[in-house]
Amino acid sequence: MSLSLTRLEKFYKDQSGKSFGVLGPIDLRVETGEFLCLLGPTGCGKTTLLRILSGLEKPDSGEIFLLPGRLGYVFQQGALFPWMNVESNVMFPLKATGITGSECRSRAGELLNLVGLHEFRKSFPHELSGGMQQRTALARGLVTEPELLLLDEPFASLDTRTGINLQEMLRSLCGRLSTTVIFVTHNIEEAVYLADRIVVMGHRPGRIVRNEPLNLEWPRSRLSSGFTEVLLSFRQTFEELVDPSATLSF
């Protein structure tokens, strides 16, 4: 086991000082090397959960057990540093943790080869397409060979075809490095394609409504009947989720 959450909760206060729950209570276990997809509609607290896991936010109650180790994080819009070229962006996590010189350069070069951006290593983020930017972000997230990789809707802003390419790339990279992955998405097909296990989250406060391993063989085909069946079943779960704040009241 690499990670477990026990009765994790998070509250926010609105302007009048009234606090409301955004998250929890959540109980979750993630095994080492597992590829977990957190699937849920916008605003269900999946990003908050990811931010808590990465240490950017603190939970209000509950316990987190996390094996100590390196962390990788890929943001929704890449969050590449615009003043650094691709190579410097990828080297950033290495330099930040004290790995410099030729080792740093060679490890960044290796990752850039894997994501197919070696010849663009001197380009700046604004000179790249959206897909290439996210590939850079993936390389930056994986360059330290993290024990745990967190991804927050990394492919949401890409077109379908580019998204599919990157999903395949991510899956093979993570398999190679045997990283534990938590992948946040609101795209059901993406989750069914990528995940070893899918955790569906519902609204206000964010809670787990379904937690299920997928019995789909690798390589997966989006056109197989098994795939469509699983997809439909999760779509069904999605249909049943109701956001109380988004319903009309007459």
Partner: peptide
Amino acid sequence: VYIEAARVLGAGRLFIFRHVLFPA
């Protein structure tokens, strides 16, 4: 988001000052 990205990628305070806040 740049500061947070730097933090989760393992950068310490001084490193963020020098390599994120200053160039940005």
